[in-house]
Amino acid sequence: MNRRRALLIALEAGVPLAALVTWWVWSAQAGSFYFPPLADILTTFADTWVFERVGSDVLPSLARLAAGFGAAVVLGVAVGTALGSFPLARRVAGPLVEFGRAIPPPALLPFAILVLGVGDAMKVFVIAVVCLWPVLLNTVDGVRGVDPTMLETARVYGIRGAQRLRTIIWPAALPQIFAGMRTSLSLALILMVISEMVASTHGIGYFVLQAQRSFAIPEMWSGIVLLGLLGYLLNAALALVERRVLRWHRGARSSALQ
């Protein structure tokens, strides 16, 4: 059993390493124009991003992402709570929500450019709109799914209004809200990149597309690597927050399964 575990761990570390080495060796001797040597990509990465363009491109991109994502979470939870609590509101708003979330998000970009121009407001708006739907829909589900016994407990003990939201409804819906936030975060990253590709003079998305247009292939690759890293790190950070905040959820679930 112990030898099997050792084998699994070796595989887990070894296979990705082997993949990297293969890429390194192959790209070094392939002489392909599109796929420059990995060594070149990494050198360019160090030259470009550490920390040359962090202030001019990375931080503005991330700030817009954070603003749009944050606005979407606040709005999504607020509207989702209202729709989850009142059946009439749900029936009236239902088709609009269904339609809004069905629009492929990039289709809203031309609309946003028309109305808001090409500045930060447009990008934050587009990111926020895209992130809104998963958070909103999951909040509605979460609020509707609160255990009826919990709601009766709240009624019996006179817990109502803001206290009911804060201590009962939102904590109970939080696992679902986080599920929505995870979906939203990957969408936010996508729209951050697209909005910069379509209309911007700085930002990571702008940089990558510009590098491709000027055939600066290692630079382009270094941008792709950076976006990959950002995607991975942002997801990991959210997962970390979720583990902290929802510690009770995992505990309660695993004890219920026993």
Binding site: T149, M150, E152, T153, W248
Partner: peptide, 11 residues
């Protein structure tokens, strides 16, 4: 309530 696990808040 009978359902203690559902009337106590797990958080």
């Amino acid at each position: 309530f009978q359902e203690y696990s559902r009337s106590l808040m797990p958080w």
